[in-house]
Design a protein around this nucleic acid. Structure first.
Lengths: 200, 200
DNA sequence: AACGCGAAACGTAACGTTCAGTTTTGACAG
DNA sequence: CTGTCAAAACTGAACGTTACGTTTCGCGTT
């Protein structure tokens, strides 16, 4: 037994992810099968299943490699308002690009009926981004650059509408929309601590 | 003309939708198959496929029958702010109920990889609701009850975060969250017509 | 000689369709 | 109003297909 055996990636990880990405571009997410990925990447199906339990898991890694790092992180130029605008514009660009759109919509769709995948997706994408952004938002609020409100809610007000358009309404997410959205959210008046006006 | 039968509609529509709903509650959306629905409803598979092209189409009708009418429409008591609060709370309740959650998440997930289904979903749910709400929002803005901004954006700011939590982040959608959300969005200052501050 | 991997083959599950044989329906004659 | 009948629609079983996920085999590397 030569020590730990399972903790290295497959030899041809890149070939596999590239194959999956290409197939998705050519035929759309739904039409891609594990068999096709294996064939295209010239690997055996057992090898594929050895490291990824499902099609969704493969595409999660595709998205992590190709989209998340470069395109989804909040930039940091010192000007928070400007950074937020750039960030949301980045989502608009991402959601407009047909290939990225295919990848994200397919992956999120799969995650809706695959608990395992949904968990990993949140831990690997959601969690890290949110944690980092949260600190930035709080700091900017303290500096008076952003409206004083629950930082989680502020982030959600910015990021939810693009996702809603992508996954629910299907409306396009343009840069103009991104700008309009940021303007609106940053125009919120400071909130009273938590006192919701009595409903009745 | 006695109209040949009740035009359209299988004889046992209700039995089929009930079977689908029950199976979803018992086993989860993903585990439900067309075969199982047919068996449970004591209907032949051909009959099922005669009226619904896919599992997603069946569940769309389940959702239309059981959720949309009673639970997703914006109420109208004359007090728009209060109506909006009630409306978003309704979504919170819906997204918290395990069965409704299963149905909605499964259906939306399927729609991500089924263009046909996505189109019908938008036409039958999205479109009608949005159109009605839009008029109400504009009227309330004219009356000074709501912040002056693009009515579509205002609606999206309210409705997106719950959907985002349901489909993307997985965070719970409580009534408290709904109230907090409405408070924040209604605190937006009137927007300058469209003048986005120059980015550079 | 042993190992790891690609390729092929296998059993399973669900799909969506086809094919009898039966039940339901509405129309019409008595 | 009622009995009869043909057409339509339905059930249930079976079929071919596809993709899944696993197992087996053989080859090349070490």
């Amino acid at each position: 037994m030569t020590a730990t055996r399972t903790d290295r990636g497959p030899r041809s990880r890149d070939a596999i992810l590239q194959a999956a990405s290409d197939l998705c571009r050519e035929q759309g997410y739904a039409a891609v099968t594990m068999e096709a990925i294996a064939t295209r990447a010239r690997v055996g199906k057992p090898t594929l299943y050895r490291w990824w339990p499902s099609k969704g898991a493969v595409f999660l890694d595709v998205v992590l490699d190709k989209l998340v790092e470069p395109a989804i992180e909040l930039p940091d130029t010192g000007d928070m308002v400007r950074d937020l605008r750039t960030w949301i514009r980045g989502f608009a660009d991402l959601f407009t690009d047909p290939h990225a759109r295919q990848l994200l919509v397919g992956l999120l769709g799969a995650a809706q009926t695959d608990t395992e995948l949904a968990t990993v997706l949140r831990e690997k994408v959601q969690r890290p981004l949110q944690a980092g952004n949260r600190q930035r938002i709080i700091a900017a609020q303290d500096a008076g650059e952003l409206p004083a409100m629950d930082p989680t809610l502020l982030e959600e007000l910015l990021i939810s509408p693009p996702w809603y358009r992508l996954l629910v309404s299907g409306e396009p997410v343009t840069r103009e929309y991104a700008d309009q959205l940021v303007d609106a959210v940053l125009s919120v008046r400071p909130q009273r601590p938590t006192a919701a006006p009595p409903q009745k």
